[in-house]
């Protein structure tokens, strides 16, 4: 029971991180970045390929690689598409996502690459008669710390205020001196850092990395930001969290029917979009404007 709740919370936290990563970029440029999935994947590949290094070094390396990939993505592709119709950006990010998957396949092969990363993670911790795996405890703690850090960053730093302002109205924010290029690049860096964390959490649970490793997570995180409210960052995180918790609970409760948990989630997206096109936390019909 404790394990179930802890699993639900840590999965919820992981999805919240992923949704936040997508939401940050959506906020500053109204882009749904499908290729976020490939950021998660490259983070996981980096961890697997640098497995012989000490875990912290390997992880730091993966953070650097992933955020660099995110910045390059913005610089080479998305910067040129700024201000294009959202549909065009959506297709472009879909295309970029496919492109990178193929590149990974060419570099690392279509079959999963695996390595045992931090084997002590799968050990169990017992106290007061309940046992939980180290991995889920660490994931839970890590996501809580990260979410608190993000909260601090968004609410208490100048960067966070600029980010929130730019998400609400980029044009006016620029008139006040917010540097568009810097801010967008930084949003991509942060999105990359979050992807690195998400990738690390995923790879500990399932160290079989293949070219489409980050795909499921990204699609569900996308569901999360739609549920929570795509133009609000707290909404994105909340939506992601809800998706993670629901998915985890569905998987436990549905038994054999758990293979359909995605369908239930997607159905929820339909209904929420119909009732509130801007998501649960939105104030108006912000999607219309997009």
């Amino acid at each position: 029971m404790i394990q179930t709740i802890l699993n639900a919370l840590s999965l919820g936290g992981t999805y919240a991180l992923a949704s936040l990563g997508l939401g940050l970029v959506f906020g500053v440029m109204r882009l749904v970045n499908f290729a976020y999935s490939e950021l998660i994947t490259i983070a996981a590949y980096t961890l697997v390929m640098t497995n012989q290094l000490p875990i912290m070094v390997s992880f730091l390396f993966s953070v650097v690689v992933t955020s660099l990939a995110a910045v390059l993505m913005e610089l080479l592709i998305y910067r040129r598409l700024r201000g294009a119709a959202p549909a065009i950006m959506l297709v472009a990010s879909f295309g970029l996502s496919k492109l990178l998957q193929q590149v990974y396949e060419l570099c690392f092969g279509a079959l999963p690459r695996s390595a045992s990363i931090a084997p002590w993670m799968s050990g169990e911790l017992k106290f007061a008669g309940v046992s939980i795996t180290n991995a889920s405890l660490i994931t839970a703690i890590l996501t809580i710390v990260l979410l608190l850090a993000m909260r601090y960053l968004l609410n208490k730093t100048s960067f966070g205020i600029q980010l929130k302002a730019a998400s609400a109205d980029f044009r006016t924010a620029r008139l006040l001196g917010v540097r568009a290029n810097h801010l967008i690049s930084l949003a991509f860096v942060m999105s990359g850092v979050l992807a690195a964390f998400v990738g690390a959490i995923l790879v500990v649970g399932n160290p079989q990395v293949e070219p489409m490793f980050g795909m499921n997570m990204t699609i569900l995180a996308l569901v999360g930001i739609v549920i929570g409210g795509i133009s609000s960052l707290p909404g994105s995180a909340l939506g992601g969290f809800i998706v993670g918790v629901i998915l985890s609970l569905l998987n436990t409760w549905l038994g054999n029917g758990r293979v359909y948990s995605y369908s239930w989630l997607f159905a929820a997206v339909f209904i929420i979009l119909l009732v509130r096109p801007g998501g649960l936390l939105s104030k108006g019909q912000e999607m219309e404007r997009v």
Binding site: S158, I161, A165, A173, L176, V178
Partner: peptide
């Protein structure tokens, strides 16, 4: 926070 935005400029 609105004022702080002005400070960026």
């Amino acid at each position: 926070e609105n004022l702080q935005l002005g400070l960026t400029g």
